[in-house]
Simulated scan of single mutants.
Amino acid sequence: MSWAERAINAVSMPVVRRVMHFYWRFARGMTLGVRAAVLDDAERVLLIRHTYTKGWHLPGGGVEVGETMLDALKRELREEVHVRLTGEPVLHGLFFNPQGSRRDHVAVYVVRDFEQLRPKLPDHEIAEIGFFPLEGLPEGTTRGTRARLIEIIDEEPVSPVW
């Protein structure tokens, strides 16, 4: 991606995100997203950094009308990080996400059985991806991401709020 494309994305993607959230506010009674804590055999977690929002996040995205949460999870993992599930993910929890909007909820799955089909190169949506040791998460890993990983790995009580 050229510097010009990156500059346009840096300006336009936050605007697009705000417009879409405004639209969803009236078009949908509630928004629902899915995210995955993808953990490899070395107990490293797969994180992504978007081009349009700050921080490192668990991969995932929105559940479309007529789509199950599991189908959305599979689609988002394929699109964002080129990961295919080879086993059943485990639902960790469903969380209210007031940072997104007062209508936003996020389902988090734990994924341990998967294959990465090919390396994911940066594009207009994903700036970086990587597997990180849990004790060495990158600077900028979001509070919600850290909280979910503590719940999953350290078996801490699950909060109902992202």
Results as ranks from 00 to 15, higher is better:
M1V: 00
W3R: 03
A4C: 15
A7R: 02
I8G: 02
V11N: 06
M13W: 12
V15Y: 08
V16K: 10
V16N: 04
V16E: 00
V16W: 15
R17K: 14
R18P: 14
R18H: 15
F22H: 09
F22R: 15
R25I: 07
R25T: 09
F26G: 06
R28Q: 12
R28M: 13
R28S: 10
G33N: 06
V34P: 02
R35E: 07
R35T: 14
A37H: 08
A37W: 09
D40G: 05
D41T: 05
R44T: 03
V45M: 02
L46H: 04
H50Q: 13
Y52K: 06
T53A: 11
K54A: 08
W56G: 01
H57R: 10
G61M: 08
G61V: 12
T68G: 08
L70P: 09
L73N: 00
K74I: 09
E76I: 11
E76W: 10
E76Q: 14
L77C: 10
R78H: 09
E79G: 10
H82N: 15
H82V: 08
V83P: 05
P89Q: 14
V90E: 13
L91D: 03
G93T: 00
F96V: 03
F96K: 06
N97L: 11
R102S: 15
R102F: 04
R103C: 12
R103N: 15
D104T: 12
H105I: 09
H105T: 08
V106M: 12
A107N: 03
V108M: 04
R112I: 06
D113P: 07
Q116Y: 00
L117F: 11
R118V: 02
R118Q: 07
P119A: 05
H124T: 13
A127P: 07
E128Q: 02
I129E: 07
P133V: 08
L134D: 05
E135F: 08
G144M: 10
R148A: 01
I150K: 05
E151S: 02
E151T: 11
I152G: 03
I152C: 04
I152T: 00
D154C: 09
D154P: 01
D154H: 07
E155K: 07
E156T: 11
P157F: 06
V158Q: 04
S159Q: 08
W162D: 02
